[in-house]
Design a protein around this nucleic acid. Structure first.
Length: 272
DNA sequence: AAGCTTCCCAACCGCTCTACG
DNA sequence: GCGTAGAGCGGTTGGGAAGCT
């Protein structure tokens, strides 16, 4: 906040799809100056959009490090698991899927996973009708997630809070792909003003990206987080629930050796 | 090939939360 | 404490692409 509107007169805001020129204007402006106050971005960048629209466009489409294309099996399972834990908290779910936006996950859920869930429930219902039993032996994975959720997360050391805090908000190892913006210039970080933490209004997360981009294992951690299956997530949380909190940091121990050297706080990842 | 339906995704809308004066 | 403005989030919609008849 503390952001003064540049002018009172309300210009007519353009709506609808963004043109490549608009994208360029917005991208160039933000890469150069940072977004700062979103409401002033369109004015300063010479766009006839509102700040909200610019923010959305940047977050969902222009931001470096975004993954495009199909969701992997692991991502799918992660979404299913987290959705059971968190419900429709798309932004929280997206924090655990680096490079994916809440909007993308939400769309994916509505177009695919929702149906999949419905189908599996239907099959389960049919099985129940067939065998007149609700034996847990016949439970599919989605049902076991449900069980996990209904039994109470505290039993598993994987509650919502832990879920939110045990992983960094969003990890852009792919931030390095800024190269595609800067023509492979390895000094791109500096050219973006990241040396000073991107911009003074940037979030910690954005600042931490810089740190991570300098460490070669940033990508390894990313893989560690995204490539474990949902069941591994649960198991690991179970296995190491007793040793998670230490000095305010959570040790990222997922059972994957790669991760054992990391320590994770709310927003930061550290090598220990 | 044309018309229709379904699906997917980008973007908008409205609400809540938070910071500031 | 209250009002205001900006940021962020989740739900919804509209348009284009893909698939089907």
């Amino acid at each position: 906040m503390g952001c003064q509107p540049l002018e009172k007169a309300k210009p007519k805001h353009k709506k609808g799809l963004w043109s490549p020129e608009e994208d360029n204007k917005l991208r160039n402006y933000i890469l150069k100056h940072g977004h700062g106050c979103w409401s002033s971005v369109p004015i300063k960048a010479g766009l006839q959009r509102n700040g909200k629209s610019c923010r959305l466009r940047w977050i969902n489409y222009l931001r470096p490090g975004l993954k495009r294309g199909k969701f992997s099996k692991q991502e799918e399972e992660t979404i299913l698991a987290l959705h059971h834990m968190l419900g429709n908290k798309w932004s929280q779910i997206s924090q655990h899927l680096p490079g994916r936006t809440d909007n993308e996950i939400k769309n994916y859920w509505h177009s695919y996973l929702k149906k999949r869930m419905a189908k599996s429930k239907e099959m389960e219902y049919e099985n129940q009708m067939k065998y007149g039993s609700s034996s847990s032996d016949t439970m599919d994975s989605s049902h076991s997630f449900q069980k996990l959720a209904t039994q109470g997360p505290q039993n598993y050391g994987f509650n919502k809070e832990a879920c939110q805090s045990s992983l960094p908000k969003l990890l852009f190892a792919e931030w390095l792909s800024l190269d595609h913006v800067n023509g492979g210039n390895t000094n791109s970080v500096d050219s973006l003003g990241l040396r000073n933490g991107f911009d003074q209004n940037s979030t910690f997360q954005e600042a931490s990206i810089h740190d991570m981009s300098e460490v070669p294992f940033g990508g390894e951690y990313h893989r560690c987080v995204t490539n474990i299956s949902a069941s591994e997530m649960f198991n690991s949380q179970l296995k190491y629930a007793n040793q998670t909190v230490e000095n305010g940091f959570l040790h990222c121990v997922t059972g994957v050796d790669l991760c054992s050297n990391f320590s994770v706080s709310n927003d930061a990842i550290m090598y220990v």
